[in-house]
Write a protein that binds this DNA or RNA. Structure first.
Lengths: 149, 149
DNA sequence: GCAAATACCTAGTAATATACTTGGAATTGG
DNA sequence: CCAATTCCAAGTATATTACTAGGTATTTGC
């Protein structure tokens, strides 16, 4: 049940953006360098983040990305779902998937998957980028290590 | 963040074993047929389940598998962890992994991963095979559909 | 004792998903 | 115009998953 690099890089990148929020538009190049992520790969992730209205962009010279709203209004859940898709443990209880099991309404295992799904969603929706940043500021923790591997 | 087939098949197989618990040792062949899972693949899963003391076996003709303890003492979490390994969303907060990030103690993102990890573990550890079975008996739900896909 | 049925074990493999790379087009500021 | 950037589509290498194949060991029933 590991997150893919998409989710992990996405959190790193969004925290990076939040840390530099006052500096205006930030280039992917600088994020890529600080967080040691492929710039081209980041592009793809930011396409998803933009689609989900989590970041805004300007093109051209002096272009870059900026958070689309306050860090306090950006949940970890919204970032992860934008990049990883639904956090449901099985397709059966994935809100995005339309074709369900034919016996979905009588399946006994379903409540297991629903409980896992809801627990994960509750957890990630209760954490905002702002709340993480606060912790970061209070403890002056390292901005270089926003993640592992 | 999907579970692999190991975890899903494992839950199906263990529920199947529990349903037939009074019949003594159950062959993998019959589980494979009922749940439509490759018998050879099930063998591999049951090697892990046995190692985790969740099932017992006898070999030879009339051999098979049986739950190693009461369904009420078998949590969904113990099954999933036996088959999927740690349910941690990133290696950083995986109890089984020894080599941590060098800056693990200062990493800001860590609390995100810890919260997800703990939420998942709490959820799956609060559900037992027995509790699912109870639901199954009360509602006379289908034993064929223990899972989706 | 032999045959059948099972668990047990190891290695290989096909399919799928992940994590990128490549090469460009469009846009903007100087 | 040119450099720097976002934006876009397609290709590819790697890793993981989900099996398959082929055997050995053990037990029961005849």
């Amino acid at each position: 049940m590991r997150l893919s690099t998409k989710g992990r890089y996405g959190i790193k990148a969004m925290l990076d953006l939040a840390i530099h929020n006052s500096e205006g538009y930030i280039t992917l190049k600088s994020i890529a360098q600080r967080q040691e992520i492929s710039e081209n790969y980041l592009e793809q992730l930011f396409a998803s983040l933009k689609k989900a209205d989590l970041v805004k962009s300007t093109r051209g010279s002096h272009g870059g990305y900026i958070l689309a709203k306050s860090p306090n209004d950006i949940t970890v859940g919204s970032i992860l779902r934008a990049l990883e898709g639904s956090l449901a443990p099985v397709a059966c209880v994935d809100e995005d998937v339309q074709e369900k099991c034919t016996r979905s309404d009588t399946c006994v295992a379903k409540i297991i998957w629903e409980k896992i799904r809801d627990s994960v969603n509750d957890a990630v929706d209760s954490i905002t980028i702002g709340s993480i940043l606060e912790e970061y500021d209070n403890n002056s923790k390292s901005s270089d290590c926003l993640d592992y591997i």
